[in-house]
Design a protein around this nucleic acid. Structure first.
Ligand SMILES: [Mn+2]
Ligand SMILES: [Mn+2]
Ligand SMILES: [Zn+2]
Ligand SMILES: [Zn+2]
Lengths: 136, 136
DNA sequence: AATAAAAGTGAGAATGATTATCATTATTAG
DNA sequence: CTAATAATGATAATCATTCTCACTTTTATT
């Protein structure tokens, strides 16, 4: 399943793991170029896909048109800003019982393998901006 | 907030509401053309955005690269096939307490306005295919 | 009704993220 | 060392979405 990684793939993986902000392919590319200056964008895309395939990382997509990568593979949830699109980790566990999940899965007919809760709302920065607008 | 809709917008809204499969912009375009033959794709995109803005419909995005529209605006959850990408409604309610949600939201700092649970797994069709493959 | 301003429209061009191609360069196996 | 194999990166192609803009339709004003 998990093949051993070459230097480029390892550099990409290190970068995604080190980042705490769910980087895009382009952000990964820029950061990785610092340490592997000749790497191409196509390789970054190829490597990201293979890392996802091998379950080293996860792919996330929400409203904006670029997909983001998550080096945090243990199951966790996300909060998404409805204003600026910021994608934040939820640092606490939301206790959904297996029964609840199984029941919902049964109702759709899918063979449940995982789940993710998405919270939507204004992030702190956008919340602040909103307040200032209302004061003027 | 909700302005009254002209004939094109109404046709688009009717189509999204009638569809039970979270159609893409292109699918909406094809279906709407049947009744409003001269409508352009750009108008469909423009109208879909304005319907989202006015909260008549919702925009959904997951792993594939096209975004989908949901005429079902009341809060509900989705099941996503990890094999073929099918996006299904979860027809039952998953009882998350407001406390659980609030606590998670507090932990991220966002001003919670909504949430969505996503269940991942193999859809019935893909599950079936998998079984047949293993039998050969 | 006549006229002027405003809003909506659709064809087509432009954009931008992602993917495909392919000749070249590492890496591995024998 | 040599042949087979895998990885690479520059570049072109793809394709969903957005932008542009001249034109039409609707709405407001006289
Ligand atoms: Mn995350
Ligand atoms: Mn739905
Ligand atoms: Zn924000
Ligand atoms: Zn499926």
């Amino acid at each position: 399943m998990k093949e051993k990684l070459n230097a480029n793939a390892q550099a990409v993986l290190d970068m995604v793991r080190a980042a705490n902000n769910h980087p895009t392919a382009s952000e990964v590319y820029d950061a990785v170029k610092v340490v592997r200056s000749h790497i191409g964008l196509a390789s970054v895309y190829r490597i990201l896909h293979s890392l996802v395939e091998q379950k080293y990382i996860k792919e996330l997509r929400h409203s904006d048109d670029t997909c983001r990568y998550d080096g945090h593979i243990s199951r966790h949830d996300h909060a998404i800003c409805t204003e600026c699109g910021a994608l934040l980790d939820v640092p606490v566990d939301i206790p959904l019982t297996q029964e609840m999940l199984e029941q919902a899965a049964r109702a759709t007919g899918i063979e449940l393998s995982s789940h993710e809760l998405r919270l939507y709302g204004r992030c702190p920065a956008c919340s602040q901006k909103q307040k200032q607008l209302l004061q003027v």
